Simulated scan of single mutants.
Amino acid sequence: MPVSVIFGGQFGSEGKGKVAHYFAKELKAKAVIRVGGPNSGHTVIKPNGEALVLKQLPTASILDNVYCIISSGSYINVDILLKEVLQTGIKDEFLYIDPFAVIITEEDILNESKNGLKESIGSTGSGIGSALSNRVNRMSSLRFAKDVEALSKYICNTKSMVRHFLLDNERIIIEGTQGFGLSLLHSDLYPYTTSRDTSAAAFVSEAGISPLDVDDVIMVIRTYPIRVGGNSGPLPKEINWEKVTNDSKSKFPLIEFTSVTNKVRRVAEFDAEVVKRAIEVNNPTKIVLNHCDYFDLSGNELLKSQLIISKVKEIENLINSRIGYLGLDRDSIVERNLYANNTIAKVLK
């Protein structure tokens, strides 16, 4: 059965939204399922060049005729979701929400503000941890999507819907959130983790799909891994954005802000250890390396392309795995072989 699962191999913000959008088009996906919740922002570039950050909807929501599904393993901030429906212009008939997706309440957000997690571990304070805790503790006050009138027109048994698509041999994509290095179950950095497991297997479970349906596991990593700003936990080989700017020979300062909290991201040089653990647990069939443009922003395209291929080979040797796709800027992804062949052609000229 044709299911692709997309997960992050570092600490989040690897560019999974861009990758999910790319493969939704490339694989002609019938539907994209978003799991997790609004503590993770996925960025996609609209046809007019505008960057759109989505915290609830899959990035494929800006595509025509792709069903967008929010699964029962999701956590919904209703105000954020309805705002994104307007921003994307998604038609009602292409958005479906499982009745047992959990609603994040104002009380959940307040609880996370009171418990000090923002200060102690760099939590986004989005209320997901509190809502998840209420779910695990089986609190009678827990609200589901089926209990919210504003969502009623989108409510659907998404498990049955997805199974119907799979029986018709349609491609389904699961858009995972955050990064494997933040997994509540598998990270060695506890308590500096998120409130859920962030492995490919967990995303399949949250989507309501059998592991036997999966034939494609896509790991997304980036050349310079990041963590959110503040006291968010260890980041091996941490540097600063000034060094990234200087090393890239950029003519303008490079700096990134988190899409949810708008804090300056912490940044580091590439470290293979968390990526190798992610490969060990998730066994990806495809690997995408984003932010390859950070290797050289001097403006010399021939030198840049040669340097990128050289750096990619270095990273492949470090992680003992082949990288199949390269993210070259904020919205482009290219197959590594096509990029390498193009580079060779330039040299032969």
Rank of each mutant, 00 (worst) to 15 (best):
D64G: 04
P99K: 07
L82Y: 00
I69S: 08
V102I: 14
T43M: 14
C68N: 15
G41K: 12
T105L: 05
A60M: 04
S40Q: 08
V78Y: 00
L81M: 13
I76Q: 07
G37F: 09
G89R: 01
L81Q: 00
T59M: 03
C68E: 03
D92Q: 15
E84N: 04
D92T: 13
I62Q: 01
I103A: 11
T88S: 09
G37Q: 14
N65D: 12
S74V: 07
K30C: 04
E106W: 08
V85Y: 02
G73C: 06
F100G: 00
N48Y: 03
V32N: 14
I62A: 09
P47A: 02
T88F: 11
A101E: 01
Y96A: 05
D79T: 06
K46T: 10
P38M: 11
D92S: 13
T105A: 13
I45C: 07
I97Y: 11
I62N: 08
K46R: 13
P38A: 12
I70R: 00
A31I: 07
L82H: 00
H42L: 05
E107S: 15
G73Q: 10
R34E: 12
I97G: 05
I33H: 10
I80D: 05
S71T: 10
F100E: 10
E106T: 07
I62V: 15
V85I: 13
V66Q: 08
A51N: 06
D79Y: 01
I69A: 05
V85T: 07
Q87G: 00
V32Y: 10
G49K: 11
V78W: 03
S74T: 09
L86F: 07
G49H: 07
F100S: 02
E93W: 06
V35A: 08
I70Y: 01
E93Y: 09
G41C: 13
Q87M: 14
A51F: 06
D92C: 10
L95F: 10
V85G: 01
E93S: 13
N77Q: 11
G41N: 11
Y67Q: 01
V85R: 00
Y75G: 01
P58K: 03
D79C: 01
I45K: 08
E106Q: 15
Y96K: 14
L81H: 11
V35H: 14
V32S: 14
D98G: 12
Q87D: 14
G89N: 06
F100K: 15
G36R: 13
A60V: 12
G49A: 05
I76T: 06
K91N: 12
V78D: 06
V44C: 04
L63N: 03
L54E: 05
D64M: 01
L95S: 10
Y96I: 00
I104P: 05
N48D: 15
A31G: 13
C68D: 10
T59A: 01
I80A: 06
P38Y: 09
S61H: 02
T59Q: 02
S74R: 04
S61Y: 04
Y96N: 05
S74C: 13
D64F: 03
Q87E: 13
I76H: 11
